[in-house]
């Protein structure tokens, strides 16, 4: 039953069990995935609000665009590889295969770690060339946005590390399938966020 139809239902008129033998959720998904979907919406709100603030603050007169640090392209590549590896792990797990699963899943996380290291290196380089946090609002936003993005990645890596330990210590792919799938979803989300952010930071 569609949500709209449900909402116009007159509940006092229909008695008896509605639906099948089992209870039905609003979404045909395990609760973990529903919760992750919700969380991704919340995270999108956070990033959208930052983007709105960025655009509003940009319109004020003291804005000096940030010099595009070329290292960000390398970092982006690292995050793309990370996402691809996660996707590979997910496909492998969905197919119920064991082969390469560990390489793909663990590798995905490692590349995410490399991405974070790369971002921090970018911070160092920027500071070394005099782009400090407070020298210009564009700089401030760069540090703020990348920082919040990294914080989200770190949260993902915490879940990833728990699953990785289970995988390495011999967990079965079936048991880990959901957790691998959710990690993959989360990584794709953060990749998209980063790409939008990167486009915004380098084009304004």
């Amino acid at each position: 039953m569609s949500l709209f139809k449900q909402l116009t239902d007159k509940p006092w008129e229909r008695k008896g069990v509605i639906g099948g033998l089992r209870p039905e959720g609003v979404f045909e998904s395990p609760p973990e995935r529903v919760a992750l979907g919700l969380f991704l919406t919340v995270a999108s709100v956070i990033f959208s609000l930052l983007a709105v603030s960025y655009v509003l603050r940009m319109s004020l007169p003291d804005w000096t665009p940030l010099a595009d640090p070329s290292q960000l392209w390398l970092n982006t590549a690292l995050l793309v590889i990370s996402s691809v590896l996660f996707q590979w792990a997910r496909n492998t797990a969905n197919a119920g295969k064991q082969k390469n699963l560990m390489t793909a899943f663990v590798g995905g996380g490692v590349f995410a770690l490399l991405f974070i290291a790369g971002q921090m290196l970018t911070w160092d380089n920027l500071q070394a060339s005099g782009y400090f946090m407070a020298s210009n609002p564009a700089n401030s936003f760069f540090y703020l946005l990348t920082g919040i993005h990294i914080a989200h990645l770190l949260g993902g890596l915490w879940v990833w590390s728990k699953s990785s330990i289970r995988l390495i210590s011999g967990g079965k792919p079936e048991d880990l399938r959901l957790s691998i799938e959710l990690c993959t979803l989360y990584w794709h989300f953060l990749l998209i966020v980063w790409l939008i952010m990167f486009a915004m930071l380098s084009n304004t």
Binding site: Q6, V17, I18, P23, E24, G25, V26
Partner: peptide, 11 residues
């Protein structure tokens, strides 16, 4: 959303 018992529609 997901843990309502059998027969318990949103409405």
């Amino acid at each position: 959303f997901q843990y309502r018992c059998r027969g318990l529609t949103m409405m």
